[in-house]
Design a protein around this nucleic acid. Sequence first.
DNA 1: GAAATAATGTCAAATGTTTTACATTCTGAC
DNA 2: GTCAGAATGTAAAACATTTGACATTATTTC
Lengths: 211, 211
Amino acid sequence: MLFSSLDPALQAHLLRGSAERRYEDDQIIQQRGEMADGFWLIEAGEVMVGQFLREGDFRAVALLGKGDSYGELAVFSHRPRIVDAVSRGQSTLRHISAHRFLDALGNYPASMRALLGALSHQLQDTLSLLAGMRRGTNPARMAELLVNLAGEVRREARVEITQQELAELLGITRVTANAALRILQQAKLIERGYGTIIVRDRDRLMQFALD
Amino acid sequence: MLFSSLDPALQAHLLRGSAERRYEDDQIIQQRGEMADGFWLIEAGEVMVGQFLREGDFRAVALLGKGDSYGELAVFSHRPRIVDAVSRGQSTLRHISAHRFLDALGNYPASMRALLGALSHQLQDTLSLLAGMRRGTNPARMAELLVNLAGEVRREARVEITQQELAELLGITRVTANAALRILQQAKLIERGYGTIIVRDRDRLMQFALD
DNA sequence: GAAATAATGTCAAATGTTTTACATTCTGAC
DNA sequence: GTCAGAATGTAAAACATTTGACATTATTTC
């Protein structure tokens, strides 16, 4: 994430001047098309980033959590925002103004280099994702997604997410997502619960993703 | 593109120290996994960027032409390259060393800001593409791709590309690509030729892409 | 604890995509 | 001009995904 790549002194400076904002479940934080006046740092809770489609469907791009930042891109590019962001459950964010950010950044040349590195890294990841999109079967792509969501946890991670949300992240329907999960469960890699997926064997799940 | 966002004086400086290299049709310019020692600027010809899959298939991400640069990401992120690059027909590139680039960049703070902007813009575009990937039917996605390839041309653009390559850019098979093109032709938006697509009506094609 | 709401599990029909296969057309080389 | 190679056009079968529908189970609300 970009904010965490900044110099700690700069991070502190930005936080001092930031405003805390709370959002309720499903509340819209930013909308596509708006011009950026700053970016957000997630203090607590989770945020879904993606695009609302015409019919009201949502195509998720990422699920962000505590310590993650987002919205910096539109600040740097001076272009309208290209994704919608929605609070998932209650969340607390800090809003850091573009003006203050860009001004302060001039005094931290090392942080600019760090930003270039972090941005490049992220673009590499995204391109890799784009190239790999269609690769592999749905169960394999689902396995990869679950490994990411489960995080670093060694064994028995509990991921609190609905099958609807998983489907939106993969760009498939809930029926197909459920079928993929059933296959992973039959292989004893996960277990399906109400609003949760339990990752039983992260290592073998990761192996499965590479097929 | 990133190179073109740099200060003209910096561009000139980098070009002076660059080495010219020629590549033949289908020759591999860079491979996934290599560490970066620089980036390329395309002087003439075209370069396909994407990933070779295990079975030898190729999943294209972009088709670059004269004036475009690529390979900067791995330089900034200090990570291995994540895409393969292949010459499409003969091409002439200039290789700019990472060392020289990063050294010179320190003297051009405004260019660093410009790079942040250009990188952010590109990441925004890529995220948008990622979110839109599965959206729309194949004919609609094909229409969008052709509009991009046709460039700024007002009417009657001639795009020299095979259906196989179009399929690789969309991540579908040639059969499906052909079917999509047939539909666009039936709507009198394009015409299919041997190794070429003629865009008859760019405006309506763009309209079609939004369905 | 009953009712309302949210989420999961599953099915069948319709649709879309890939695979496989082969004929045809175009282009460049000789 | 003929031939070989490259690219296109198309069809049928196999496979995968979506759509729409409904039953079931879990959770929350009152």
